[in-house]
């Protein structure tokens, strides 16, 4: 029990630090939703090294903490929807056992951006936000692919 608590605590702290690093060095290209999402490196790794339930726990606590520290309620909604939907999609994709880590992570990246776009549509009630779909699709593939590649390396290194 104590082992599990400390493990989850360390992972949550790691995910928060990743968010903070990204906050300090933004790779911003000037489009909403296009960012690396370093914290997801921790989440995707946990999905493979631990299990989906623990990954979800760390993800939710991380979004809550980071939103409280650095953001407002709107940002919280975007983060939470993206985190929840992408983790759901990745869990299902991983269960299928026919996808590589990179593919699972790419699907996660795409669904993350899609969920945020949908929330933007609900909040703003403007169809125009769907114009961002192709950009977010490409960015989801690139960032998801990168996170997936790194997770693969981490998994191999820890084996």
């Amino acid at each position: 029990m104590a082992n599990k608590v400390s493990y989850l605590g360390i992972m949550t702290a790691l995910a928060c630090i990743m968010s903070y690093i990204e906050f300090l060095l933004p790779f911003s290209v000037g489009i909403y939703g296009v960012k690396l999402g370093l914290a997801n490196l921790v989440i995707v790794s946990m999905l493979y090294l631990a299990n989906a339930r623990q990954a979800l726990l760390v993800s939710v606590v991380r979004v809550l903490l980071v939103s409280l520290l650095f953001a407002n309620f709107a940002v919280f909604l975007y983060s939470m929807s993206g985190a929840a939907v992408s983790l759901l999609v990745m869990t299902v994709a991983k269960k299928k056992e026919c996808f590589s880590i990179m593919m699972v992570s790419i699907l996660g990246g795409i669904s993350h951006n899609l969920a945020q776009l949908f929330v933007a549509y609900l909040l703003l009630e403007q169809l125009i936000v769907w114009n961002y779909f192709p950009v977010l699709l490409v960015s989801g593939i690139i960032t998801g692919g990168l996170i997936g590649y790194l997770t693969d390396r981490i998994k191999r290194a820890l084996k």
């Binding site: 593919m103 790419i106 795409i110 779909f133 192709p134 950009v135 699709l137 490409v138 593939i141 692919g145």
Partner: peptide
């Protein structure tokens, strides 16, 4: 993934 990328770029 390649097909997805090409269609997104085409759309753009």
């Amino acid at each position: 993934v390649f097909i997805l990328l090409v269609s997104a770029l085409g759309w753009l």
